[in-house]
C-alpha cells in the first residue's frame, strides 16, 4: 500500500466558527493506481491533493505514507519523504520564468544534492524522452502552453517519483494539448507510476481507474 488517509479533518476558523475544508476523509491508494478526484469548485479537491502531497497540514486524523506516520513527522523528515517519492504537476505549469527549460528540469535534482554528471545524464534522458531536446535552451515564455506543461510533467518525473500529483494539469490547455498530456499520464501509469489527478473534465477523469467525488469537503462514494 502506497498511502492511507484515516479520518482526515481540516478546517479554518471563520467568525468564531469552524469551516470544514475536509471532513472525515478516508482513502487508501495502492501502488500503480490512477485516481481522478472530481467535484465542484470549493469542494476541497486541491486541498486534498495538497494534504496528500504534504504541502499542507491537517487538523485531525492519520496519514501513513509507506507506513511512515506523516502526521507525526517533523518538517524536515516530511520534506525528505516527498522529495524522494512525489512529483507535482500544476494547472499553471509553475515553471520559473528566469530559467531555461534545461535549468527548470535540473532544479529538483539540485535539491537532491546529485552530482553534476548524474544531473546531466538525467536531464538529457528526460529531454530525449519528451522530445524537447531542441528546446532545452529556451525560456518558458518562448514555449506554447502544451509545451510548457510537457516541461512541467518532465520536471515532476525527473526525480523518479512513485507518485505524481496533478492539479488540473490540462486546465490551461486546448483540447488537443490536453489529450496529449492525458495520454502521457496513461503511459506513465502503465509503466507503474501512481497518479492522482484533480480534474473538472469528465473526459479526463475517465483516464483514471478510480474516480473520487468530493462535495463540501466530504467524500461522496
Amino acid at each position: 500500500m502506497l498511502l492511507q488517509l484515516h479520518n482526515i479533518f481540516k478546517w479554518v476558523q471563520q467568525g468564531g466558527q469552524r469551516v470544514f475544508l475536509l471532513k472525515d476523509i478516508n482513502l487508501q491508494v495502492e501502488e500503480g493506481e490512477f485516481i481522478s478526484i472530481m467535484g465542484p469548485s470549493g469542494s476541497g479537491k486541491s486541498t486534498l491533493l495538497n494534504v496528500i502531497g504534504m504541502l499542507d497540514g491537517f487538523d485531525e486524523g492519520e496519514y501513513n505514507f509507506f507506513d511512515e506516520p506523516v502526521h507525526r513527522l517533523k518538517e524536515k523528515h516530511r520534506t525528505n519523504l516527498y522529495k524522494q517519492y512525489i512529483g507535482f504537476v500544476f494547472q499553471a505549469y509553475h515553471l520559473i520564468d528566469e530559467l531555461t527549460v534545461y535549468e527548470n528540469l535540473e532544479m529538483p535534482l539540485l535539491y537532491k544534492k546529485l552530482k553534476s554528471s548524474e544531473r546531466k545524464a538525467m536531464v538529457a534522458d528526460m529531454l530525449d524522452r519528451f522530445n524537447i531536446v531542441g528546446k532545452k535552451d529556451l525560456f518558458p515564455s518562448q514555449l506554447s502552453g502544451g509545451q510548457q506543461q510537457l516541461v512541467g510533467v518532465a520536471r515532476a518525473l525527473i526525480s523518479k517519483p512513485k507518485l505524481i500529483l496533478a492539479d488540473e494539469p490540462t486546465g490551461n490547455l486546448n483540447s488537443q494539448q490536453g489529450i496529449e498530456i492525458m495520454e502521457l499520464f496513461k503511459e506513465l501509469n502503465e509503466e507503474g507510476v501512481t497518479i492522482i489527478q484533480v480534474t473538472h473534465s469528465e473526459n479526463n477523469a475517465k483516464y483514471g481507474k478510480r474516480i473520487i467525488k468530493l462535495l463540501d469537503g466530504r467524500k461522496l462514494n
Partner: peptide
Amino acid sequence: YKEIGIRKVNGAS
C-alpha cells in the same frame, strides 16, 4: 513568492 513556492515544492529546503 511564486518562484520560492515552486522551488519548495520541488524539494528546496
